[in-house]
């Protein structure tokens, strides 16, 4: 492997884009958002992020899934946290998402449209709701 230039990168991207536009009609609106605040990073959110990218690629749904990062979502006690938005399903926040759970979320929630038990949390966490 040699050092890649920006032009080579651009070319590679163009080559794969052909496949992507064909799938565009299926609706590209699946979103996966990983919490990357101090709490998320300390709990291993980077590994979860990598696992999600890898699983999305393995299932060949990359063109339909937008993977994003954000700061702390307020659920520091169950980091790493991942929000998943799939059209036609309730927006869901998963907690305690290690690499294995992340792969599970991609397979079950994104591909099979079933939620993953035991990791669903809601926000805001109780200590930041003003009474």
């Amino acid at each position: 492997m040699a050092k890649m230039t920006l032009d080579q990168l651009r070319k590679l991207r163009e080559e794969t884009k052909g496949e992507m536009t064909r799938r565009e009609t299926e609706g590209k609106e699946i979103q996966v958002i990983v919490g990357m605040g101090t709490c998320g990073i300390a709990a291993g959110a980077k590994e979860s992020f990598d696992a999600i990218v890898k699983a999305v690629d393995e299932f060949k749904i990359g063109a339909n899934v937008v993977i994003r990062q954000t700061g702390c979502m307020g659920l520091c006690h169950v980091e790493p946290t991942v929000e998943v938005i799939v059209p036609g399903m309730p927006a869901t926040i998963y907690g305690r998402v290690d690499a294995a759970v992340a792969a599970d979320i991609v397979r079950k929630h994104l591909v099979d449209h079933k939620m993953v038990n035991g990791h669903i949390y809601d926000r805001p966490a109780i200590d930041i709701i003003s009474k």
Partner: peptide, 8 residues
């Protein structure tokens, strides 16, 4: 945005 871009 998409996973393909992230991998590249």
């Amino acid at each position: 945005g998409d996973a393909n871009a992230l991998l590249l």
